[in-house]
């Protein structure tokens, strides 16, 4: 694997043991609890699966990590910094679900990637030489540079995914939040994406991948967070990914789950959530 040149140049990518630390996070919407006492850590240079049913709080945790929701309690630190400060340094990039993007929007690939740089620009968002270089490097890494003038809707499914990964790269973030990245992806694209993810990991970035499809987790995730309103378990995949834990996450046997991901979660009241400390 080619070693990426900008790894040490970017201060937030310097190897640190701990990328994300969430402590006792509670979030509720209009009195309804979305997340309760969530504590977890994600190491630098790791691919971490965030697994739970629909409504288990995966997207709320993402929103919390992007600073969109005000927690009623708890603390989030990224690269050792308080969340606000880390966000100002563009530490967190969000890669949206492909269904949520307007592919007919009159914008071309290079412009989408340039949007990753807006946070660091002046108010008029006039790109400088560094911005153009970052866009070029990002597009070259995902092999989309020749297609940079295409309207985004003209890209194939796999190219679309890579365009948004390039935007996260251009942003220079050390944490990537990926929302169901494998939804509707063919095998070839999936392999290509996993290859990219592994490169990102080698550079010290941390990827948090939300999914309700378990087949991906054992394949390439180093760490797993099982979530259902609270963290049921987190840590190394091999330790956390036990049948017992999965049953508690999804309220059924894992085999059942692969066919019906929308099963209602069952949590026995009064039982302490089990936690594995890494």
């Amino acid at each position: 694997m080619a070693s990426p040149p900008d790894l040490v140049a970017h201060p937030d990518l310097a190897p640190r043991a701990e990328r994300i630390r969430v402590s006792h996070l509670c979030v509720s919407y209009h009195g309804a609890v979305a997340l309760h006492e969530v504590s977890l850590r994600v190491n630098a240079g790791s691919i971490c699966g965030l697994v739970g049913t629909n409504g288990a709080g995966k997207s709320t945790l993402f929103k919390a990590l992007m600073g969109f929701v005000r927690p009623s309690q708890g603390d989030i630190r990224i690269n050792g910094l308080p969340l606000r400060q880390a966000l100002r340094r563009q530490a967190v990039a969000y890669v949206p679900q492909m269904e949520s993007v307007d592919w007919n929007f009159p914008i071309h690939v290079a412009n989408v990637v340039m949007m990753g740089r807006y946070g660091g620009m002046n108010l008029l968002r006039i790109p400088g030489r560094d911005d153009h270089r970052a866009v070029r490097e990002s597009l070259e890494r995902v092999e989309l540079w020749p297609l940079r003038h295409r309207q985004i809707g003209e890209l194939s499914g796999g190219q679309r995914k890579r365009a948004f990964l390039a935007r996260a790269l251009a942003q220079g973030s050390s944490v990537l939040l990926l929302d169901e990245p494998f939804a509707g992806v063919d095998i070839r694209t999936e392999r290509l994406m996993i290859e990219l993810f592994q490169q990102f990991r080698a550079e010290g970035r941390s990827l948090l991948i939300s999914t309700h499809d378990l087949s991906h987790i054992t394949g390439f995730c180093d760490e797993v967070i099982l979530i259902n309103k609270t963290v049921l378990a987190y840590g190394d995949t091999s330790e956390v990914f036990t049948e017992e834990n999965l049953a508690r996450t999804f309220g059924g046997s894992p085999a059942q789950l692969l066919t019906s991901p929308g099963l209602e979660p069952r949590l026995e009241p009064g039982r302490q959530p089990w936690r594995s400390e890494p």
Binding site: M66, Q90, Y94, P96, D102, I107, V112, G119
Partner: peptide, 22 residues
Amino acid sequence: LLFRRDLILFCFDPTHARSIGV
């Protein structure tokens, strides 16, 4: 004219806009 690029971003991808501090 002043907010052109921000408005395009806002129309295209408000979530990303928010996440980068816009």
